[in-house]
Nucleic acid binder design. Structure first.
Lengths: 234, 234
DNA sequence: GTCAACGAAATTGTTGACAGAACTGAGGAC
DNA sequence: GTCCTCAGTTCTGTCAACAATTTCGTTGAC
């Protein structure tokens, strides 16, 4: 019993290397970057042979993606990529605002030096990849940047929840990265956030954390506003 | 195209009558009421013949329960009922406090008369079933009571999230219902909450909403405090 | 008596095939 | 010309058997 404790602990917790995880992240990215467009149909067997995995894995991934709110399923009718109505987008961002504001309040400021170093490194990657036009890598760096920040909130449940809603709205904020003006604003705010964390300026940090979400939301609503909320079932 | 819109809408959204849903809610209740105890092993084939369904349905249910945080799985080693460490319990209740407080702020007060009527009805059931010792039915009424309240927060995402965390901590607050003193306090607070909603006393309502969670948390921590956080892997 | 290696039992992960529901398009009635 | 009906096709949901892994009990060496 006792010797097993150590043996089990060193093997790690998230049993990775699974084809399931690969499928999940691939589909998540495809949806986030718009390679799979809203209302597009997802066929199990098609994906099954694309990823070279059994159909049951695709099925499991669909269940998880549905739970995450990225796709929609109906019995015997398959899965389609979800497109949020305007109201849903507002509600999602309302929730994100709540969660991120609360998380920001729980982060110890001024932040530890090694955290600052890590964030500056990630942000450098984000800036350089973004300016080089490598949106894919920039997006990954951006994801990690925010995840690292919110992981410092000293509440793993809260951090996990923020991550969950980050994925839910990935299609929205990835949409904004492609816009040069918005991307530049995003980069500036990142620098300001790090500075605020380093100096311990809690008010600025919390304000930045919340306002940082707005440009993507506004751009998305301006682009997709008004026409697709009544076309729910087809 | 156009005629399909109406046809699809009237069929309803949550395709129920699935054996999957039956298995899910049965297992959720078993865990919540402690019929399945923490660290207890769940064997696929066992449940498969208990519920008279294929093993793949049990498998899918496990995946969902794992995602909900009610069970824990490791590759080729099956599933066990999750027991939260003291820190996790604190974090979960911190998140619930955030969510429910924010939801309470978003509810329109004074509440609509038909909402009040509905809540009084549900609470009557809760009180009577609880005093009759029918904890199962009382718990269902209690679930519905709070779900109806938070569904009035005009943010479906937020309401859904609260429901999600309600399920996560079901084993904790169901534990409290069994305690007569705590149950009595719970009943009193329900009446006070309804009164505050009816009269539009927002301060009282928000305070009650948050404090209503505390007794169960304290009782649980007092009962399970301190000994099982280091015994994670066995 | 303790410990390690081995083999059997139990349990999970995977595959392929089959049944049933929903979509598609042609043919016929009005 | 429009609408309805009815097969054919496509896709999802379900099932049973197979393969791989872990766990548990036994044996044997020291």
């Amino acid at each position: 019993m006792i010797k097993n404790a150590g043996k089990a602990a060193d093997r790690g917790n998230k049993w990775a290397n699974n084809s399931f995880d690969a499928v999940m992240s691939a589909l998540q990215q495809d949806i986030a970057f718009g390679r799979l467009k809203p209302r597009e149909r997802l066929v199990e067997e098609e994906l099954s042979e694309r990823f070279l995995v059994g159909r049951h894995i695709i099925r499991a991934a669909f269940k998880e993606l549905e739970h995450a709110g990225l796709i929609r399923r109906r019995q015997n009718r398959g899965a389609i990529v979800n497109d949020y109505s305007t109201e849903e987008v507002d509600e999602l961002y309302d929730v994100r605002t709540i969660l991120q504001h609360q998380a920001a309040q729980r982060i110890q400021l001024p932040a530890a030096p090694d955290l600052i170093v890590r964030l500056r490194g990630l942000n450098d990657t984000y800036v350089h990849r973004g300016q080089a036009g490598d949106l894919d890598a920039a997006s990954v760096a951006n994801d990690t940047f925010h995840q690292v920040i919110f992981s410092a909130c000293r509440n793993r449940q809260l951090a996990h929840l923020i991550q969950q809603y980050w994925v839910k709205t990935a299609a929205i904020h990835c949409y904004a990265i492609a816009n040069p003006a918005l991307a530049e604003k995003s980069r500036q705010e990142h620098f300001q956030m790090i500075d605020a964390m380093e100096s311990g300026d809690r008010v600025s940090f919390e304000t930045l954390t919340v306002q940082h979400m707005q440009p993507a939301l506004q751009a998305f609503k301006a682009a997709h506003g008004g026409w697709h909320s009544q076309a729910r079932e087809s």
